[in-house]
């Protein structure tokens, strides 16, 4: 049984539609990451609601976890702020639901670690996530070896499972990574944690090229991309550019909640201009 027959009313193709539209416009997507509930639920919702207008094409929303072992200091701090602000998995799904009341076009993917999902209950999580309007999942600590846990059940609920390909993913391993991938491919620009050093553009271009040879899925590039110039450079040869740590740092350094909202939206506008400018040159 495929997703379309299982839940015909559920719009499961927001990701496909968005990438198709952008392909027609001949420009890459800007994917923006913020952590759910950072710094608190209300501010987080305000940030989310303004993202599409500021130029985000796809929204990545972090599910806070106490032990984010693939994240650098910026997202670690964002996670702590969210947890201290009372964020939970239930509140994260509530946040998505609230966002979907006003915004039906922009795809939203949840990103995080497996334990909070496992603890919530995989089936219950997928039902609630589909109902809230989640389009995809990125779960850092679920490699293809554990597809039975969440990847395959997610597909049955019409939720894409976005796979990460990294510099260590060699030709021998790549088919395994692509096997049950859906939505888009997330090309990790370097070996390391989020918010690390600046990626080497030529290396990333070669990786993206290798992924394109083997897959028709759109390729997004993330890790270490902080500003409009980098976004423009990477966007020239990829389908999407992901920015996260720089956005949560803007929340961190803002003095007021209103300031945090303004800072994130301001940076997203710059980045959006960057990916559009990159496409024009």
């Amino acid at each position: 049984m495929n997703a379309a027959t299982e839940s015909p009313m559920n719009d499961t193709t927001r990701l496909d539609e968005r990438f198709a539209t952008l392909r027609a416009e001949k420009r890459p997507a800007l994917v923006t990451y913020v952590t759910a509930g950072d710094p608190d639920f209300e501010t987080s919702l305000e940030i989310l609601e303004g993202l599409p207008a500021a130029g985000a094409d796809v929204i990545e929303l972090g599910m806070p976890f106490s032990d984010p072992m693939a994240d650098g200091p910026a997202i670690q701090k964002a996670t702590l702020r969210a947890l201290e602000g009372g964020q939970t998995m239930a509140r994260t799904l509530e946040l998505v639901h609230a966002f979907r009341q006003r915004e039906s076009q922009t795809p939203l993917v949840l990103m995080g670690y497996y334990n909070p999902i496992y603890r919530y209950g995989v089936e219950r999580f997928l039902e609630d996530a589909a109902r809230a309007g989640v389009d995809g999942l990125i779960v850092v600590d679920l490699p293809p070896e554990h597809d039975d846990e969440l990847c395959l059940p997610a597909k049955r609920h019409g939720i894409a499972f976005i796979r990460l390909a990294t510099p260590t993913t060699d030709a021998k391993r790549l088919p395994r990574v692509l096997d049950n991938a859906s939505g888009f491919l997330y090309c990790v620009s370097m070996n390391g944690v989020t918010g690390g050093r600046e990626p080497v553009v030529q290396d990333v271009e070669r990786m993206v090229g290798q992924l394109r040879e083997r897959s028709r899925l759109p390729v997004a590039v993330g890790f270490g991309i902080r500003n409009a110039a980098q976004a423009a450079a990477i966007g020239r040869f990829s389908d999407a550019v992901v920015v996260g740590s720089a956005l949560v740092e803007a929340i961190d350094s803002a003095e007021t909640r209103h300031g945090a909202v303004q800072a994130v939206h301001g940076l997203v506008r710059e980045l959006a201009a960057g990916v559009r400018r990159g496409a024009d040159t």
Binding site: L142, P143, H146, A165, T168, T169, R173, V188
Partner: peptide
């Protein structure tokens, strides 16, 4: 249960 970078 590790990130893809470590799997190989």
């Amino acid at each position: 249960f590790v990130p893809e970078t470590l799997m190989p």
